[in-house]
């Protein structure tokens, strides 16, 4: 039971309490760029979930079985992790194109963008390198914890982007002042959403 509780808290913490977009400001470029329609934002969040989980798992393995034994982690982690992510994205793209053309068509255009999505690099590093982010635990994650954590972070990203897309859909027909049209009003909506998410702070004593 306590193991379940542990993973549940990990999930809730990464999903809403420390929401990656509204509370931690990571992954904002795709968040503002893609959240124009609900449909595309769902595709984007699925692609991010997929890549983020794989990338975190791969970086965890590389960190624990290659970088730490060789003693080069401290100064090589940035290039190594970004290369892991870039090659993983390439690989996933080729794999999906071969195995499932409809799925490739659905999320194909988003995949290359994910390489430069800072959410993926941040989560992969956070899961692998102990003490990378003070907000969370100072000790490293176990492999299972890392996978659960990155799925929850990715779902938090998906939640944020879908909420935003739905609001922006409604906003197309609402009277926005001339000087706020376009991105400024989107930022103000994001401010309100972020204010709402701050209300989750302290949930379950976190």
């Amino acid at each position: 039971m306590s193991a379940f509780r542990h993973y549940f808290l990990l999930f809730v913490g990464a999903f809403i309490v420390q929401n990656i977009v509204f509370i931690r400001f990571i992954g904002l470029c795709p968040f503002f760029g893609v959240s124009t329609q609900v449909e595309t934002s769902i595709g984007m969040s699925l692609a991010v979930t997929f890549v983020m989980t794989l990338a975190s798992a791969a970086s965890w393995i590389v960190w624990n079985y290659a970088l730490v034994p060789l003693g080069v982690g401290e100064f090589l982690y940035i290039p190594v992790f970004i290369l892991v992510i870039a090659s993983l994205v390439q690989f996933v793209e080729m794999f999906i194109r071969k195995v499932s053309p409809p799925l490739y068509k659905a999320m194909g255009i988003y995949l290359p963008l994910i390489t430069t999505n800072c959410a993926v690099l941040a989560t992969a590093t956070e899961v692998s390198k102990p003490g990378f982010l003070k907000l969370n635990m100072p000790y490293g994650y176990s492999f299972i914890e890392g996978v659960v954590y990155s799925v929850s972070v990715a779902m938090g990203f998906g939640l944020a982007i879908v909420i935003m897309a739905a609001i922006r859909d409604r906003m197309k027909v609402s009277p926005v002042p001339e000087w706020l049209k376009g991105y400024p009003i989107v930022f103000i909506v994001a401010a309100l959403a972020s204010l709402a998410f701050m209300g989750f702070a302290g949930l379950f004593g976190m």
Binding site: I23, F25, P184, I188
Partner: peptide, 19 residues
């Protein structure tokens, strides 16, 4: 200086630049 303030300041700054 909290999280919503960042979005709010950026949005208003952008509106000002547009203006």
């Amino acid at each position: 200086i909290l999280f919503p303030g960042a979005f709010l300041t950026f949005g208003l700054l952008m509106a000002f630049v547009n203006f």
